[in-house]
Amino acid sequence: MFKIKYLIILFGLLAFGGCKSDPASKKSTGDDFEAAAIDSLRQEFKEVYYRFPSPEEMFSYLDSTGLQFNKGLLNPYANIDSYIETFYQSLNMGIYNADLAYISLFQRYKESLDYLQTIYILSERLRISEAFNKNLVFRIENNIRNNDSLEVISDDAFNGIINFLSKNKKEDVFALISMGGFIEFMHLSLSLCGEYSPENKVIQKIADQKLVFNNILKFAHQYSNERNIQKMIGLVEPLTQFYNKVQEETGKATVTKAPEGKLVFGAKKKSMLSENDFYKLKELISDIRIKITTAK
């Protein structure tokens, strides 16, 4: 059976209640993210997956002591009322996913449920809710305090979504969700990283995300005949241009094999941002994010 899987293990749920992340990723973490950039070529029948860093990984570099849960950073779930077009529904689904990851750091069950429900509602509107197994939400609600099974449930859920999106040839939706997630992740990191300094490891990581961005964009370009994709490309154009200017020092590409037979493409980058660029990036991300979350 040929299955083309685009597995995106969205970090949030994986790390619920306990940062049990993929051991393979643990190996390759340290100071670096593992940003796997994938080129998707359906014809090659490759099993690839493209993985965002887990919250533990993502926020590991942060000094998490004294870090407070700041609800104000999140996209309020009440905004869902404004998302009536599929474009915004998809983008914001990604954003909410990222928010969910953030929330999971702080073990906040009520907000987790709220955001999960919100994601589910968006999936209904996009007609991809069938990805969620029967009783999924029900199971989640009932297991909210039981960390272990929750992980399994959430794993199932998002495996499901990815499966579904691929089977149903909704790669464009997938691209939008990914981009949304990316923007939010950037937004959160930028808000939590603190003051600018050349030694700030977090900022280094943030800079590395350029690669992730480019890969998502490249992936999306394959479906540029879709209106929504065109819109998205247009929306992030300022960021695209920004990144094109940033200097990069390329490192070696690595390929490792993770336990479940998945291949991990890694690239160690040592990118750096100047102070000006840093603030410019912050502004850009903020702009784009506002446009998405307010659906204007």
């Binding site: 009536i84 077009e85 599929t86 474009f87 149903n168 209106r227």
Partner: peptide
């Protein structure tokens, strides 16, 4: 039906527009 669904979703967006 996949195509039909996509078309319908697109149609919805158009109506909103």
């Amino acid at each position: 039906y996949l195509r039909k669904l996509d078309d319908a979703l697109d149609n919805r967006d158009k109506i909103i527009e």
